[in-house]
Nucleic acid binder design. Structure first.
Lengths: 138, 138
DNA sequence: TTAAATTGTTTGATACTCAAAATATAATTA
DNA sequence: TAATTATATTTTGAGTATCAAACAATTTAA
């Protein structure tokens, strides 16, 4: 079906443009893409253990340990003991980490505002509905 | 505005899920994410020179040279002389590269079909309209 | 209590990336 | 035309990210 092909192209195009936007935004900062992504997830989802964070980021815990070391050294996150499970480490943003996150999140909001500049409120509601349905199907 | 924040969350969630889907799909193959992405771009946009391909992929030409070397060795792409500009190299998929691309593209189509399972044709048209508008604003 | 499973870290190897230097060719200028 | 400047690609050297496997500490299950 041609409609499906068309939608596929548009989604891929959107993904690619989002990807290069993020890359160019991150390049302006002192941190790497992997580091900013880690901050983003912690900022949006809140503190969590290494295992869970690694899964959300799509890397192994070994990889994450290295990244967390760097972010701790940079003063953006902290390691804390898990209150119940003594094997586990809970990773949490520091105040400075929160600042970085809020700043980055604001750029995302500004982008989305620009992207939807010519979309009516009714269309925007439809779009939100579609995204909710699609995200549920993954 | 709360609506903007909501849309931002949904778009980010979609991006992240798309990203991990692609990663898990690529893991099943013999090729890396960077390699599959190169094949995807060549398959969708057709043959092009190194400079242009590097820009579309968001890497330097130096980085691309290395990747192209590997893909040539793997038999998926070929280097050809540019008919007018003797400085330039045109990169093109081989028959095997085309097969890989078609196979990968089919997986994308299947994914999009699943994602839109509960979206009506009317909503889908709206969605397509929104994506076109958004992609234009980047 | 013992055995098995889970959580996180360390280590060694590999892949990806960039910036800068080098090479070849094209385009422009004097 | 000859010299200069710009462009396209490759090569090289260094840094970063990543994984798998081995390890240590702790929890869970038998």
């Amino acid at each position: 079906m041609a409609e499906l092909e068309r939608l596929n192209r548009l989604l891929t195009e959107f993904y690619d443009k989002m990807s290069s936007w993020e890359q160019s935004v991150v390049k302006e900062t002192d941190y790497s893409l992997a580091q900013v992504h880690t901050i983003e997830v912690l900022g949006c989802c809140g503190a969590m253990r290494m295992k869970e964070l690694a899964e959300k980021l799509g890397v192994t815990t070994g990889t994450l340990t290295v990244q967390v070391d760097k972010l701790v050294r940079a003063g953006l996150i902290e390691r804390r003991a898990h209150p119940q499970d003594r094997r586990a480490i809970v990773v949490v943003l520091t105040e400075e980490g929160e600042v970085i996150h809020r700043r980055h999140n604001q750029m995302h909001l500004t982008l989305v505002e620009e992207l939807t500049r010519h979309i009516s409120p009714e269309q925007e509601s439809e779009l939100i509905g579609c995204l909710e349905k699609m995200n549920r199907e993954f």
